[in-house]
């Protein structure tokens, strides 16, 4: 499993995302830049240049036509994937921490930061796909998060219902029309929820947390189904399609390493068996914490983005794809 090293960012990675086909990998970073790469050979296809601050988050639609990004410059931007042109800019009072497409790519949801007298807010925008340079400045829905601020979000299969992860470790479902909290699990984690990724059919999702664990939760009632407990704060968790694994990444930040850990780093991507909750392997490589992990939609490769500024793409060997380390038990995805 020889990795491809993608060198094109000058500062730490914040989020990476495959498109639906998995041929493209989008990355954003504290260097203000968004890059797109060919996942099979690591060649850089292009750059989306325009943000004036850390780009915290990025998402691409299912047709690979539109890209949306959120940044510390308080902007949400819509881009043309093919031309690299910025199509529209929304401006907010605070930074945009998370964005996601949803509802057949007709909507986007974003989280803006709680700061300078502004509450953490969720906004949903309609996307005008016919004329992408003409978007409504005003959100279709907007509400403030009361209590612990939201750190991550995603649409669910139920129209107008979004999923959020919070600083306190809480996970919630909200009706975006009313801002009503439909369901919550206050104790999904005991520290910040750092990532949230849904499975392909959106019936369950995985969360990672600074509490050193990742969990699979049921989308209906937010009850934990599986827990993966590690010895390091986690920044990202991903589900490997067609294989019974989850991938976890994190690591003590540089300041904590010197004070709390003798063993420098622990900057490995950890593979856990999704059903047995057992660690099955680790992949080394990064020189700093792993901030973001994404798995190819077909499960043929994965990528990790690090605090070290590198993206590592690992194409799985045939042996990995064939292996049945726990026998012939048929495990549903």
């Amino acid at each position: 499993m020889r990795p491809i090293l993608l060198q094109g960012h000058e500062r730490s990675l914040t989020q990476i995302k495959f498109n639906k086909e998995g041929d493209l990998l989008f990355s954003c970073s504290k260097d203000h830049i968004i890059n797109v790469w060919f996942s099979h050979n690591g060649e850089r296809l292009g750059t989306y240049d325009g943000h004036n601050g850390t780009v915290w988050t990025v998402d691409v639609d299912a047709k690979s036509e539109l890209l949306v990004s959120g940044s510390a410059d308080n902007q949400l931007r819509l881009w043309s994937v093919a031309t690299g042109k910025c199509l529209f800019v929304w401006e907010f009072p605070t930074a945009v921490k998370r964005v996601a497409f949803g509802e057949d790519d007709t909507k986007i949801v974003c989280i803006t930061e709680q700061r300078m007298g502004h509450q953490c807010a969720i906004r949903v925008f309609d996307i005008n796909r016919e004329e992408p340079t003409r978007q409504s400045k005003e959100p279709l829905h907007m509400f403030n998060i009361i209590g612990s601020k939201a750190t991550v979000c995603a649409f669910t299969y139920t129209p107008n219902v979004i999923l959020t992860g919070h600083e306190s470790g809480k996970v919630s479902l909200f009706d975006v029309r009313s801002g009503e909290e439909i369901e919550n699990n206050e104790r999904a984690h005991s520290d910040v929820v750092t990532d949230l990724q849904l499975c392909k059919d959106q019936t369950y999702f995985i969360t990672s947390s600074k509490d050193k664990s990742a969990r699979i939760l049921d989308i209906r009632n937010l009850m934990p189904i599986k827990t993966y407990t590690t010895e390091t704060p986690l920044n990202s968790a991903a589900i490997a399609p067609n294989r019974p694994y989850v991938l976890l990444g994190g690591g003590q930040d540089a300041m904590s390493v010197t004070t709390t850990s003798l063993r420098q780093g622990k900057f490995e991507t950890r593979f856990w068996h999704r059903v047995f909750e057992e660690e099955v392997g680790r992949v080394k490589g990064h020189f700093g914490p792993i901030n973001t992990i994404a798995v190819h939609p077909a499960g043929t490769c994965y990528a990790s983005g690090g605090e070290d500024g590198f993206i590592r793409v690992h194409h799985f060997d045939e042996s990995y794809l064939r292996a049945k380390p726990y026998g012939d038990l048929e495990i549903m995805d």
Binding site: Y157, I225, V275, L329
Partner: peptide, 15 residues
């Protein structure tokens, strides 16, 4: 595995 598969089936049906 049996528990997992049973849960996956039930949640898909519910969806």
């Amino acid at each position: 595995v049996d528990e997992w598969n049973a849960w996956r089936t039930s949640i898909r049906l519910a969806m």
